[in-house]
């Protein structure tokens, strides 16, 4: 237990900060994923074949390729791509993206592919009458989407989004390969300097379990709250 003491003698405070980092990356990635999902879901449902193709390739490629490979792509290719874009605008200095942003964007794009599928399923399971009614009432397109379809879509997607959240939370452990100090990376450092990997990796597992358990409690409560009327 000495190993987990706070302060200079133990790893307690470091691991606590690392856990906060994991939470921060997960939430950021989840939100980035939502943005991607909100862009790609309409493309997926659109009648235009070309837009369909774009959205389908996004979800198929991301869901068919290992997360680690996507992270390597962003880790090694991220600053190169940004520098290329910057060079078009006449900026030739070296740009380094910090690990938090690289990691969140990489995991966010992965999480977005799953969220897209969830939203698509949710919209398709909304009663057809809702679409017709809003058409008949003559709502404008954005009001139709934001005030009528989206609230129902969100309610229907909560159970599946909780799965996406779990996947995202667990995927953040992979960012440790880029050097961002989250739970996995911190455990790796602690295990290396104390030569006690069994203890620290087991403790990391406990931390992840605690995070998934607590977040499931929260999500269940949300689900109850939004299903009150049903």
């Amino acid at each position: 237990m000495d190993l987990l003491a706070f302060g200079k003698t133990g790893w307690g405070d470091e691991l606590f900060v690392a856990a906060l980092m994991t939470i921060a990356v997960s939430i950021t990635a989840m939100l980035i994923g939502f943005i991607f999902a909100l862009i790609f879901t309409p493309l997926k449902l659109s009648k235009n074949k070309f837009l369909n193709l774009i959205a389908n390739s996004y979800t198929t490629v991301i869901r068919g390729v290992p997360e680690l490979l996507v992270i390597y792509l962003f880790f090694f290719g991220g600053s190169g791509a940004l520098m290329y874009v910057a060079s078009i605008f006449g900026y030739y200095e070296y740009i380094e993206i910090n690990a938090f942003i690289t990691g969140s964007v990489a995991i966010g794009i992965i999480s977005g592919a799953y969220s897209t599928e969830v939203f698509r399923g949710a919209i398709q399971s909304i009663d057809k009458g809702q679409f017709e009614a809003s058409k008949v009432l003559g709502f404008k397109k954005h009001i139709h989407f934001f005030k009528i379809i989206m609230p129902q879509m969100l309610r229907l997607s909560i159970p599946n989004l909780s799965n996406v959240w779990q996947i995202t939370l667990k995927d953040t452990s992979l960012i440790s390969v880029t050097g961002l100090v989250e739970i996995m990376r911190q455990s790796y450092i602690a295990a290396g300097s104390t030569r006690d990997p069994l203890f620290f990796y087991s403790f990391a597992a406990v931390l992840y379990l605690a995070l998934t358990f607590l977040s499931m409690q929260l999500i269940n409560r949300l689900e109850l709250k939004y299903n009150k009327g049903y």
């Binding site: 667990k170 992979l174 990391a204 992840y208 379990l209």
Partner: peptide, 10 residues
């Protein structure tokens, strides 16, 4: 409930 990476490392 835990990442596969943790399981491999343990």
């Amino acid at each position: 409930g835990t990442p596969l990476l943790v399981q491999i490392f343990i």
